[in-house]
Simulated assay, not measured.
Amino acid sequence: MSTTGERSAGTIYEQVQRSPEFAELRRRLRRFVFPMSAAFLLWYLAYVLLASYAPAFMATKVMGNVTVGLVIGLLQFVTTFAITTIYVRYADRHLDPAAERLRHQIETAA
């Protein structure tokens, strides 16, 4: 049975969620994810808008039958892999160590 003090403090998960360490982890994640997501969505939107409103430009041949539209479309895949690689490196350096400390804190408290 929990005491009144334990109830007011909440579960260990609630305590961790209110901790400055968790707030910092969330801030670091958002600092990466939101700008990167916005940049990629703008890049993708630019591709869609070019395909819709500049078909002559997108049909411009670069080399043989390879067009600007095809190159930009393939660059969308390259961008996706690049963002994934950058995120993994960012998470390894900035997110995973902090998350590991929080996990350890939860496990030792349980």
Rank of each mutant, 00 (worst) to 15 (best):
V48Q: 05
P55K: 05
L45C: 11
V48N: 04
L49H: 02
Y47T: 07
A39Q: 06
V68K: 00
S52Q: 15
F40M: 13
Y44N: 11
M58R: 01
A56M: 09
L45A: 15
Y47A: 08
A51D: 14
W43S: 12
S52N: 15
K61G: 02
G64Y: 00
P55W: 06
T67S: 06
A51Y: 06
L41H: 04
L49R: 08
L45F: 12
M58Y: 03
K61C: 02
W43F: 15
W43A: 12
N65M: 09
A56F: 06
A51H: 10
G64K: 02
L42S: 13
L45D: 03
K61N: 10
K61H: 13
G64Q: 02
V68N: 01
V48I: 11
V68H: 00
P55G: 05
L50D: 06
V48R: 08
F40P: 06
V66S: 03
M63T: 07
N65A: 13
V62G: 05
V62L: 13
Y53R: 11
L50A: 11
W43L: 12
A39G: 15
A56Y: 08
V62M: 03
V48F: 07
V48H: 03
V48T: 04
A59N: 11
T60G: 08
M63F: 14
V48E: 08
A56W: 10
A46I: 12
G64H: 03
A46Y: 08
M58C: 02
M58S: 06
L50T: 04
L41V: 15
S52E: 14
V66G: 00
A59C: 02
M63H: 11
